[in-house]
Amino acid sequence: MSGAQNRLEIKFRLTDGSDIGPKSFPAATSISTLKETVVAQWPKEKENGPKTVKEVKIISAGRILENNSTVGECRSPLCDVPGGVTTMHVVVQSPPSDKEKKSLQLKQNKCVCVIL
């Protein structure tokens, strides 16, 4: 394999249609490193940017990518063109507020067993 095949050009598409990148990453780069890159390079003028890696979801070829996966493992033979740029979508999901947490706790199903 050549060095070019061990690297992937990736641009990150934000929900407003703007992009971060493209930037070249080795195939061994973890998805968690990609998320760190997104957080670090998030445009300062955009509101609702991620504050931590935990708030970032990266989607490629319709799949949410797991932190412990590598870029090489996530390649799609149908979508990735050699020498081309792969677009990965970025979704920011802020952690729930205290009010939302309480609401979620109240909505949880509770099961009660009655022994007669």
Rank of each mutant, 00 (worst) to 15 (best):
I58D: 00
V38F: 01
E9I: 04
M88G: 05
R7Y: 06
S30W: 04
G17F: 11
S94N: 10
L14F: 07
E73V: 07
E73G: 11
P82S: 03
L78I: 10
S60M: 13
K57G: 11
V39Y: 03
V56S: 07
K51V: 03
G21A: 00
D80F: 12
P43Q: 02
I10P: 00
K101P: 01
R13F: 01
Q105T: 03
S103L: 11
G21Q: 02
G83P: 01
N48V: 10
L106P: 01
D16F: 14
A61C: 14
A4R: 15
D98F: 10
Q5N: 13
P77E: 12
Q5A: 15
Q105R: 05
L116M: 09
E47N: 01
H89V: 14
K107T: 03
T70F: 03
L116R: 09
I20F: 05
G72Q: 10
M88D: 04
L106V: 05
F12K: 00
I31R: 03
G84Q: 04
T86G: 05
E45M: 04
P82K: 01
V56G: 07
L8T: 14
S32Q: 13
K44E: 10
V71Q: 05
I31L: 09
E55I: 11
P96H: 05
K54A: 04
G17E: 11
A40T: 12
T70E: 04
N67F: 03
R7C: 11
P77I: 12
Q108R: 15
A4E: 15
P50A: 04
C111W: 12
S103W: 09
N67I: 00
V112N: 06
K107P: 02
T86I: 09
C79Y: 10
A61M: 05
G62P: 05
M1S: 09
L104E: 13
K57A: 13
K35F: 05
I59H: 08
I115Q: 05
S32T: 14
A27D: 13
R7M: 10
V38A: 00
K102N: 08
V91H: 15
N67A: 07
I59G: 06
Q105H: 02
S76F: 05
C113L: 14
V85I: 13
V81M: 07
T37D: 11
V112D: 07
I59Y: 04
K110W: 00
P50K: 06
K11W: 06
T37G: 01
M88S: 09
A4W: 15
S32L: 12
N48A: 12
V56Y: 06
K35S: 01
V112M: 09
R13P: 00
K57C: 12
V114W: 13
C113P: 03
N109F: 06
K44V: 07
F12P: 00
T37H: 12
Q41W: 02
D16I: 08
R7T: 11
F25Y: 09
T70A: 10
C74N: 13
E73A: 09
T86A: 13
N67V: 03
V71K: 02
S32V: 14
K57T: 14
S24I: 02
V85T: 14
C79E: 14
Q105A: 05
T37C: 07
D80Q: 09
K57V: 14
P22F: 01
S32K: 13
E73F: 10
N6Q: 14
S97V: 13
F25D: 02
D80W: 12
G84N: 04
D98A: 11
V90R: 00
